[in-house]
């Protein structure tokens, strides 16, 4: 994939790492209709987001269609600066992307 769909900021403060992530995805519900053709736009959404901290999973999320488009996600875990955080998403069409970053 040429362009990364994920942006992550991870910051450590007092032993707690706060991760903020933005994923660029249209999160189509499958209920909307195309105004020009009247056809239903098929559902296209992220159904799983996994996050690893130093290679060990800390969070995996199961998402439905009710997460807003271009999803924002933030969560916290105990860690320190220099640790690695890896975020992976997968959508209902089988597409996926992941990004690894270092905690600041």
């Amino acid at each position: 994939m040429a362009k990364k769909s994920i942006k992550i900021r991870a910051k450590a403060k007092n032993g707690v790492v706060t991760v903020k992530a933005l994923i660029s995805h249209k999160m189509e519900t499958g209920l909307r209709k195309d105004k020009k053709t009247g056809k239903v736009i098929p559902a296209h959404f992220i159904e799983a987001v996994d996050c690893d901290h130093n290679g060990a999973p800390v969070m995996n999320a199961e998402w439905g269609v009710a997460i807003s488009k271009n999803p924002y996600l933030s969560f916290k875990f105990a860690g320190a600066s220099g640790d690695t955080v890896k975020l992976t998403w997968k959508d209902n069409t089988g597409k996926s992307d992941s990004l690894e970053t270092k905690v600041k």
């Binding site: 707690v16 519900t29 209920l31 901290h53 060990a56 999973p57 800390v58 969070m59 995996n60 999320a61 199961e62 998402w63 439905g64 269609v65 009710a66 997460i67 807003s68 999803p71 924002y72 996600l73 933030s74 969560f75 916290k76 875990f77 105990a78 860690g79």
Partner: peptide, 23 residues
């Protein structure tokens, strides 16, 4: 229409905190 929005499974050192945007 479908009430379930998301489930976040927390593991290991994760803290009880999540933030997101919903429809």
């Amino acid at each position: 229409g479908t009430p379930l929005i998301a489930k976040f499974n927390l593991k290991g050192k994760a803290e009880a905190f999540v933030s997101t945007r919903i429809k």
